[in-house]
Write a protein that binds this DNA or RNA. Structure first.
Lengths: 237, 237
DNA sequence: ACGCAAAATATCGTATACAATTTAGCCGTA
DNA sequence: TACGGCTAAATTGTATACGATATTTTGCGT
């Protein structure tokens, strides 16, 4: 068993809905960075880990490839996606393009109880930041994304919600690859500022904050071409 | 063989890339409205039509479900998607949210040769409008969407391009279901206006035109809940 | 003649089996 | 020793087989 095994061993039982279960488990593992970019996910290994046939494993991997989280190469296998710097830029460009619009929609229809929910998310987030340990780090990564996803869900547009699901998940991969500061959620306070602006119904300011927030995350990346990955250039410098 | 058979018989040979080929063939059939919303696509039938096993047929249908073009119901089968009025609204809300941003990106990096390409698309489009016959109608539907997709491709963001692929395809379904005027591309001249604004580097005006263009398409829809679908209510009036 | 229950049919869900392709190791030769 | 081709192992691509679930039909009783 390769390194992927350790990262996945936790939800091997329960085949409730079939392939979806497996897909979700692997996606969580990728988003929480228990699986590193480039890791090979062979159909047999995945199937064995979850005690299902290759058929279901294949279906799950296929699904993840549609979300851009794994790349399947014909006759070679599936790998946890290894986004190039250019892909990374496109992901964040897409978020800058989309999220202000989502924010406007969400702010227009947000209810008091939903505002409360958002604030609770912020609390949970800061609690995790103060905590130490790897599981807290992972939970923090997920919580940071959940803020953006919750906003999308409040917007009421399930299509945009799905797009955001994909973008947030892929962002996690990009940060894992190119992030510099130990914690990507340095901009936690920015989440709070955005909620504040929403509460005051200051949409323009909220959008402004959102765009800058995304820019800050992107600014923390070192997007220089890394030919690493086993290329000869790794030995030149 | 059911009604789906006739609509698909054209690319049954050549199994080049496997499931992708089938997926694309079915998608084209849906987008060009040779397959009506609600049509049943059983795995066996699809497999037989393309002379492949159910495995590949299933993979293709699964892929289409991720794009929202077919809905698979557990233990019942796959059907060409039948978007509800609410889904339809969400699709167009998403387009209004996304396309102005894409347009800005595209206009910023567009080259003279790409402008030429766009103009050629417009010419082709008006040629098809003047022509008569069902094949011309189908080509016209596709050409109308191609305008928006070309803009997305010019924007250089492959992720947004994929989102637009999905939205345009699903729009075709919505128009097939709820469109009123015989031809949905009544707004062909609006495409030309947008290109004109891009050429003059008047981004704000171009975005303005784009938003209204999308609104016009949506305005041509009758999004009242239709319980029809073969229900007894069809005979009451 | 109508309605309900049970069998028959059709279709999907999953597993297993075989074919094709790639990758890695091995050996012979220059 | 270095190189090239060949064989064998591993992995994916596709097909078939079997079991589960939903739908339709049939037949019986009222």
């Amino acid at each position: 068993m390769n390194s992927a095994a350790n990262a996945l061993q936790q939800t091997d039982d329960s085949a409730e809905t079939g392939a979806q279960q497996i897909r979700d488990a692997i996606r969580d593992a990728i988003v929480e960075r228990r699986l590193s970019p480039g890791t090979k996910l062979s159909e047999s290994d995945v199937g064995n880990l979850f005690n299902v046939s290759r058929t279901l494993a294949r279906a799950a991997l296929q699904a993840l490839s549609y979300e851009g989280l794994v790349s399947v190469e014909k006759n070679r296998g599936a790998f946890v996606a290894y986004p190039s710097p250019d892909e990374a830029r496109q992901i964040f460009a897409a978020r800058r393009l989309i999220e202000p619009g989502i924010l406007r929609e969400a702010a227009a229809r947000i209810t008091p109880s939903e505002i409360q929910h958002l604030k609770q998310l912020l609390l949970e987030e800061s609690r995790l930041i103060s905590e130490r340990g790897q599981t807290a780090r992972r939970a923090e990564i997920k919580a940071s994304g959940d803020f953006h996803l919750t906003l999308a869900s409040i917007s009421g547009n399930t299509i945009m919600q799905r797009f955001m699901d994909e973008l947030v998940a892929r962002s996690s991969l990009v940060i894992a690859l190119y992030g510099q500061s130990t914690i990507s959620s340095c901009g936690h306070s920015e989440h709070g500022d955005i909620v504040g602006a929403i509460e005051r119904k200051d949409l323009d300011h909220a959008c402004h904050l959102m765009v800058h927030h995304i820019a800050h995350i992107e600014a923390d990346l070192d997007l220089r071409e890394r030919k690493g990955q086993g290329l000869k250039e790794a030995f030149d410098l």
